[in-house]
Amino acid sequence: MYETGNDEKAVWTILNSWELHYMVVERFNLAEHYGLKGRKRADLLNEFRKNFGLKRNKEEMFFVYFKDADSRLAVQIVEFVLEKADSVFNAFKTRQARQASAYLQSRLDSCKHVLDSLVSDFVKFQVVNDVYESSMQFDATIKYLSGLQNIREEVDLELNFEKLDRGESSKRYQELLKRMMGVNSAFAGTLNGMLSDIGIIKLQKSPQF
């Protein structure tokens, strides 16, 4: 089993967890196999761990082994351990990705709020001071479009993850798709001058392009 980067500790912890080890004890009825029926869980785990091993080999891979007089049983146990560890690790990574996605969404919402506030403050400044300076409008437009582009890229990232995780028919995917359509609409509208009434200029008419 390979291990890379920050996943190493997670894989090591899963493979050495008492929960996984006790699943093996119960699945293969090792209490009867070791002649320890009726003994405490700790005794069964200790007996199992005398024969179970986890090492890192020269190829920087985890090497899992189990010793038993019944070689067929030993192979079955190793296969079971790897299968369950892989399942638990995949669930861990999926949960981790969803947490990252939720954090990203909160950051997106926060950035959008700040961006909207900046645009609003800019408009108020222009109205109060009767100032419509072209370079200021141009800079504000670029910042506004940059913010939209950042949001578009981050929503696209979430869309791709959701598509791989739960497919295009999931409720979350459809919500993200609507958000992407909204961002694209705002982007196109800005380029076409639909926000000119609040000081956001139509870039195609800007002398700086």
Rank of each mutant, 00 (worst) to 15 (best):
F63T: 13
V64G: 08
Y65C: 05
D68E: 14
A69F: 03
S71Q: 14
L73Q: 08
A74R: 00
A74C: 14
A74S: 15
A74E: 13
Q76D: 14
V78C: 10
V78S: 03
L82G: 01
E83H: 15
K84P: 07
A85V: 03
F89Y: 11
N90W: 02
K93P: 00
R95N: 09
Q96I: 00
Q96A: 01
R98W: 03
R98Q: 06
Q99L: 13
Q99S: 05
Q99C: 10
A100R: 09
Y103V: 10
Q105T: 08
R107M: 00
L108Q: 11
L108M: 07
L108H: 03
S110L: 10
C111D: 14
C111Y: 09
C111V: 05
K112P: 00
K112S: 08
H113R: 12
H113Y: 03
L115P: 00
S117P: 00
L118A: 11
D121T: 04
D121A: 12
F122W: 07
K124F: 14
F125K: 11
V128N: 13
N129D: 05
N129K: 10
N129T: 15
Y132H: 02
E133M: 03
E133A: 05
S134Y: 02
Q137K: 08
S146E: 15
S146H: 12
N150M: 03
E153D: 15
E154D: 12
D156M: 07
R166D: 12
G167A: 00
G167P: 01
S169N: 15
S169K: 15
S170K: 10
S170P: 02
R179Y: 08
T190S: 14
N192R: 13
L195G: 01
D197L: 11
I198R: 15
G199I: 09
I200F: 02
K202E: 06
K202Y: 01
L203E: 06
Q204N: 11
